[in-house]
Write a protein that binds this DNA or RNA. Structure first.
Length: 808
DNA sequence: GAGCACTGC
């Protein structure tokens, strides 16, 4: 069906020449030059990666990143921070952010100043401190961009913004981006303490604030604002040139989230066009990274059109200031530099971190069973190495964590009385909060903790007291497959940078050891870096954001790593089918409105459909969409007994139409509970934390829908009676966003997608599991061992036909 | 009759 549209949008399907063609009204897609010639070298690399990806599918990646980044160099002084790192609840974040201001009372100025003075000596001890003058000097001249490469504990996140604050060019605000919300809040709190100023909105004189979803805390005097990447992108949507900022510091760039890639692209455009767009006022950009692909970043920022050919730099600044990495950086950090290239607009600063040495051990032979191997290693360490020193084991998922937990506990029963005890602690994101907290608690005397963790311990959570790391060398990661248009979740080998990051977790408190459950040869054969997320995800959201910020031709967007052509094509087509793009490829009114919503384009489209006159079910759809945009609200249960109990407790919520109306019934029931929602959640085996998030999202979406003019003020108070017609309208809204996620029943009882004719199975977690209905729509499609549809609803085949007919 | 790593607006 969309063959004709496809051809118009992106060229002939069989025409695999080297080009990407934007949606265009021209009948024949013109062969557009993909990008200026200077991108030639980079493009080759992407093509290679693209091919490798499609052909072998064995390479891997995930956001790799050294350090928790939350308070480099100071985390030991802030034990409470560690706990907050695992929390996602807003209340906790709030408390965290306001820890210095008890109960909202205005703090005494003197006490703040005293505290600030007492912190000064520890600040001066940070490795970054001696670079303060140099950093200022570099940005004072014609340099607009500074790269800071700082290893763990260098103090760059807290100190660099303070170094710049009183510079003559810095009249406005400094934004410091963070990938995680907790980091933004805790860094803001720390910097406010160091500066002796109240935090955020607590006082009009406050100089340090933060901005995260659901919680922005700034004052009229805010000069330093810690902000999540997503929030800065939202600000850029309103004000593409960021006029209120004198500087943007982009932290944790090595993690290479999609958001950070977009931010870097927009900043690069602003910097190179700054005269024209911002008048005489310049915008300084500081890019901070732990393990930098410095070469790529330098070329990226140095490559802008008006950069002068040659500059003088670095000659008198010593070895830390140049295009060449200073000696003594850790192995494996991609140290190749381009020494003969001098930069006009750009300088680089290398700062050594504080990390204890970690001794490496490899297997002599590869293992088939890393759980078994990890078990051996844990007991070997436990018997051989004296206390203190906890063990952190990196595994792939909940299944392997629980398997090893059972094994360790079983063998631990046989530990002799005169040997210390072992305390096993699982750690993964789906684990309830209280259980996660246990890894931060002190364990009984004469015992050793064994933390069995997923990738969550690689960046998001820093476990104190670890001196031994056992690394299985694998990671479970999501990969978007363009051919099939679906996500797969597969276990893959980690990258070298990821292995180094895991190893570093043993050297935070004292010298440590890392046991890699693979051979040294295996290590050498690992990919150097993890593929950045932008190369392995669905790009429709990113491309819509780019278009919404006024970049008409997405090929003009300076991607640090250019995504494969197939991904770009796919995303453009998807946006077109959603109605977010016009026939000429420009963003449509629908697209503009979708881009304003904090949702994926598909969910945004469902919202818009629900606001239309004939559907008119926005209230209900918002509840459903809110559920789909947070973690699973239904607790997964371990035992058969619990499962049966949960099934009967949830019976009143289950709807025969499917999972979406079940979610709606759950939200409606939860929100009508006025006395004790926590207890209600426990009774129905529903995650209270997830439901709190649902209510936050619901509130935000309601407000934004009003602002977008999708509904009248107060309409949300109206609760319509459930009815057949109502249910039908709701399901038809879902079809508007998920037309491609539809399947019909075959005589043999299996389902085949209407587009693509692929077999899908209803996931066993669905209320429709095992049911036979003529057609289904699903909001999630995941390939693990087979293709599964999750969050499934029953629809009429005729509705699907209507939607498919109208969109092609 | 399966089993999902991790962020974020």
């Amino acid at each position: 069906m969309p063959e004709k549209v496809y051809t118009r949008l992106v060229g002939d399907r069989d025409d695999r020449t080297d080009r990407i063609v934007e949606p265009n009204t021209n009948k024949a897609p013109a062969a557009q030059p993909p990008h200026p010639s200077k991108w030639g070298v980079k493009r080759k690399r992407h093509e290679k990666e693209d091919r490798a990806l499609r052909v072998e599918e064995t390479r891997t990646s995930t956001g790799t990143k050294p350090k928790d980044g939350t308070l480099a160099g100071n985390s030991a002084a802030l034990p409470s921070l560690q706990r907050d790192v695992t929390s996602s609840s807003r209340e906790r974040l709030r408390r965290n952010g306001r820890a210095t201001i008890p109960d909202g009372q205005a703090p005494k100025r003197g006490s703040l100043k005293e505290k600030s003075l007492s912190l000064l000596s520890s600040r001066k001890a940070l490795p970054i401190w001696v670079y303060a003058d140099e950093i200022r000097k570099q940005l004072r001249g014609s340099k607009d961009v500074l790269l800071v490469v700082g290893e763990t504990g260098s103090g760059k996140s807290t100190q660099v913004p303070q170094f710049l604050l009183d510079e003559p060019w810095c009249g406005g605000c400094i934004a410091v981006t963070q990938p995680r919300r907790v980091a933004a809040v805790s860094l803001a709190r720390r910097v406010a303490e160091e500066m002796g100023t109240p935090l955020g909105s607590s006082s009009p004189a406050s100089k340090v604030g933060y901005s995260i979803r659901f919680d922005t805390s700034v004052s009229p005097s805010t000069r330093i604002k810690f902000i999540t990447e997503g929030m800065l992108l939202q600000e850029m949507l309103r004000d593409p040139t960021l006029p209120q900022y004198s500087a943007v510091i982009v932290d944790e760039v090595h993690e290479r989230s999609v958001n950070v890639d977009l931010i870097l692209g927009f900043l690069r455009n602003i910097v190179s066009k700054r005269q024209a767009v911002r008048g005489s006022r310049s915008l300084k950009v500081v890019v901070m990274s732990a393990t930098a692909d410095v070469q790529g970043l330098m070329e990226y920022f140095d490559d802008h059109p008006d950069a002068a050919a040659v500059g003088t730099e670095a000659q008198d600044h010593g070895s830390s200031w140049s295009g060449l990495p200073a000696s003594g950086r850790s192995a494996g950090q991609n140290g190749e530099g381009k020494s003969d290239h001098l930069h006009e607009r750009l300088s680089v600063c290398y700062v050594k971190g504080r990390q204890f040495p970690v001794k490496l051990h490899y297997l002599s032979e590869p293992t088939q069973d890393f759980v078994e191997e990890a078990l051996k290693r844990v007991f070997q360490i436990h018997y051989k190495e004296p206390l203190p020193g906890d063990i952190l084991v990196f595994l792939t998922g909940q299944d392997t964590v629980e398997a090893l937990e059972a094994l360790v506990n079983e063998y631990a029963l046989g530990i002799e009385a005169d040997v210390p005890k072992l305390v096993t602690l699982p750690l993964f994101a789906a684990l309830p909060q209280a259980a996660q907290q246990k890894v931060f608690e002190r364990c009984p005397p004469n015992s050793r903790k064994v933390i069995l963790a997923t990738n969550i311990a690689e960046t998001s959570v820093t476990v104190p007291g670890v001196r031994f790391v056992v690394d299985c060398g694998k990671v479970k990661l999501k990969q978007f497959r363009n051919r099939l248009g679906l996500d797969s979740l597969l276990v893959k080998p980690i990258s070298q940078s990821s292995a180094i990051q895991r190893q570093g977790r043993a050297g935070r408190d004292a010298p440590g050891q890392c046991f890699r459950l693979f051979t040294e040869d295996d290590y050498r054969n690992l990919q150097k870096r993890t593929n950045p997320e932008i190369l392995r995800c669905d790009l429709s959201d990113a491309l819509l954001k780019i278009k919404a910020r006024g970049v008409q031709n997405v090929l003009e967007f300076p991607f640090l790593d250019k995504p494969p052509r197939e991904s770009l094509e796919n995303a453009l087509l998807q946006l077109y089918h959603l109605g977010a793009l016009n026939d000429d490829g420009s963003i449509s009114d629908v697209g503009v409105r979708i881009s304003r919503l904090p949702l994926s384009p598909t969910l945004g489209r469902v919202i818009l459909e629900a606001s239309s006159e004939d559907k008119d079910c926005l209230v209900e759809i918002i509840d459903i969409v809110a559920c789909l945009s947070v973690e699973n609200i239904f607790l997964s249960l371990a035992t058969e007994e619990k499962k049966e109990e949960a099934e009967s407790a949830r019976r009143e919520l289950m709807k025969r139409e499917g999972d979406h109306l079940t979610l709606l019934a759950t939200v409606q029931s939860y929100s009508s509970e006025q006395t004790d929602r926590k207890q209600w959640s426990a009774r129905h085996f529903v995650s209270h934390r997830a439901m709190q998030n649902v209510m936050d999202v619901r509130k935000q979406l309601r407000k934004q829908c009003e602002q977008l003019g999708l509904c009248d003020t107060g309409i949300m108070l109206r609760q319509s009676e459930a009815s057949e017609e109502r249910s039908a309208a709701i399901l038809r809204c879902l079809l508007a966003g998920f037309a491609s996620n539809t399947a019909r029943l075959l005589p043999d009882g299996s389902f085949k997608t209407l587009l693509g004719n692929q077999t899908v199975a209803i996931h066993p977690s669905s209320v429709l599991f095992g049911k036979k209905v003529e057609a289904i729509v699903f909001s999630e499609f995941v390939y693990t061992n087979r293709s599964y549809a999750r969050n499934v609803s029953s629809v009429k085949l005729s509705w699907v036909d209507d939607v498919l007919a109208s969109s092609s």
